[in-house]
């Protein structure tokens, strides 16, 4: 039960972050803050499907209707901590939207992750110089694949 509660909170955090900054305001949202943004999300937590391997569990929420379209979130919990979050369904008004780059929404992770846990291909960040490269996250990624 504790794990489910944790998961609920995490899911809400993610969706609040996804939709907290809507279109008209630019209020600064600390993670999981605004309860008002939670309302449209609650249906996403009604039922879940989960898969477990070892102490790591992946939960997939229901698809939740939002004013931007349906959203479905999947999170991975390992030893009681959220280790990954991904959005499996995005708002889109037609099939082509998936390929329109500018529609990409960020998925914020509750705790920052290292490159391996985040399962990323590239890093976008403030300009890395050649001098600083050896120490960079991108360098770790490149070495893993070289």
């Amino acid at each position: 039960m504790r794990r489910i509660v944790l998961w609920l909170m995490s899911t809400l955090t993610v969706l609040v972050l996804l939709f907290g900054h809507s279109t008209s305001t630019s209020s600064r949202l600390p993670a999981g803050a605004e309860s008002s943004a939670v309302a449209p999300v609650s249906s996403a937590t009604g039922s879940t499907s989960g898969s477990t391997s070892g102490s790591t569990t992946t939960y997939t929420g229901d698809s939740a209707p939002t004013r931007w379209g349906p959203v479905q979130v999947e999170i991975t919990v390992s030893d009681g901590r959220v280790t990954d979050v991904s959005v499996v369904e995005y708002p889109h008004e037609n099939g082509k939207d998936q390929q329109i780059n500018a529609r990409a929404l960020p998925v914020l992770v509750q705790e920052t992750l290292d490159a391996q846990s985040a399962d990323i291909d590239m890093v976008s960040g403030a300009t890395v110089t050649s001098d600083g490269y050896v120490e960079s996250l991108q360098s770790a990624l490149d070495q893993a694949g070289l």
Partner: peptide, 9 residues
């Protein structure tokens, strides 16, 4: 800068 804050697919 050694940590990831968010992921864009």
């Amino acid at each position: 800068p050694r940590r990831v804050l968010a992921v864009f697919p």
